Structure formats: structure tokens, C-alpha cells
Amino acid sequence: MTDTVLPPDDPQALAEATAQAMWSRDRAAQALGMQIVQVQPGRATLSMQVRADMVNGHHICHGGMIFSLADTAFAYACNSGNHNTVASACHIDFLAPAREGERLLADAAVQSQAGRTGVYDVTVRREDGSVIALFRGKSCRIPGEVIAGLQQADSAH
């Protein structure tokens, strides 16, 4: 990977570069077929198609899959400033089922950011706009930067 030089006054470019660096290592999201729809400073939208191997014994999307989509959108939103950030707590309310073949969208947005901690809300919808889950995540910044971490990993190989 070539070194990425970003102007410090372009938060949108930083958010996009950070998302690209995270995505290159995000095997879980890739395995679940997620796609990054949009990333902005403090915000992210990801999508996921509900596949046959994602439905449970009630023939609806397993809650863990919906949670994974919401949690991943949360991760991309809270890391968008290129500061390594992890979840410290989260909660989800399932409001309606998702079914095989439906495309889900998870929209994450920062609600509060103070020091090393933040609060993010994620709304998971079907493509028709109907809400199926509400997720709230609390974040904690840890040492390091996302892009620098990718460059360090690349140089180690």
C-alpha cells in the first residue's frame, strides 16, 4: 500500500480513507456480504442482503445477523476520524423481522462525542424504509490510528 497523505482540513476524505483501510481488513463484514454505502465524519451507512444461510428456525433473519450489520455500521461511523475506536457497550431493539432476499440498510450517526467516549445510534431498515431495529452503541477510543495500523500491517508482510 502506498502512504496516504490527507489534508488535515478534509474530514470527508479522511472518513473515506479510514473506511477503505478498515474494509481491507474486515473479513467478517465481507463474509456476510455487507457493502459500504456511504461514510461521512461521524456517520456511516452499510447494507446487507439477507441470504438463505442467515435465516433462523422461524425462517426470518437471525437477530445476530441484524446486530452484526448495525454493529459494523457503528464501527465505521465511530472510526471515521481515523482514531482507533471500539465498542464499550451496545443494545439493540428488534422491531420487525427481516426475510430472506431483503436488502437491509444500517444508518449510524454520532449523538455525542466527549473525550475518548461517544454514543452512536443506528437505525436498521428494509429498502422500503420500514424500520426493523434500533441499536445504540457506546464507543471508546484506544491508542493508535486506523490508517497507520493498516500501513504497519502491510510493512510487516
Rank of each mutant, 00 (worst) to 15 (best):
S80F: 05
H59W: 14
T45G: 03
W23M: 09
S24W: 13
T72S: 15
R27V: 13
P41A: 15
G33F: 15
A89K: 07
H58Q: 14
A28V: 15
C61E: 02
W23E: 06
R99G: 00
N82T: 02
L105E: 01
Y76M: 12
A75Y: 09
L69A: 10
N82M: 06
L95K: 08
H91F: 09
T72Q: 12
A96M: 04
M22Q: 08
M34Y: 08
R99M: 09
M22I: 13
V37A: 12
A89Y: 09
D93F: 06
L69K: 10
V86M: 09
R27K: 11
S47M: 03
R51M: 15
W23S: 07
A73T: 09
H58G: 15
F67Q: 08
A29M: 07
G101A: 01
M54H: 12
A96Y: 00
I60L: 13
M65C: 15
G63M: 11
C78L: 12
Y76G: 11
R51S: 14
A52L: 13
F94L: 11
L69E: 06
E100S: 04
N82Y: 03
R43F: 15
R25Q: 14
P97F: 03
Q49S: 14
S88H: 00
A21K: 01
A98H: 01
A87F: 14
T45I: 10
A87K: 11
G81K: 05
F74C: 10
A29Y: 05
N56A: 14
S88N: 10
Q30M: 11
L69C: 12
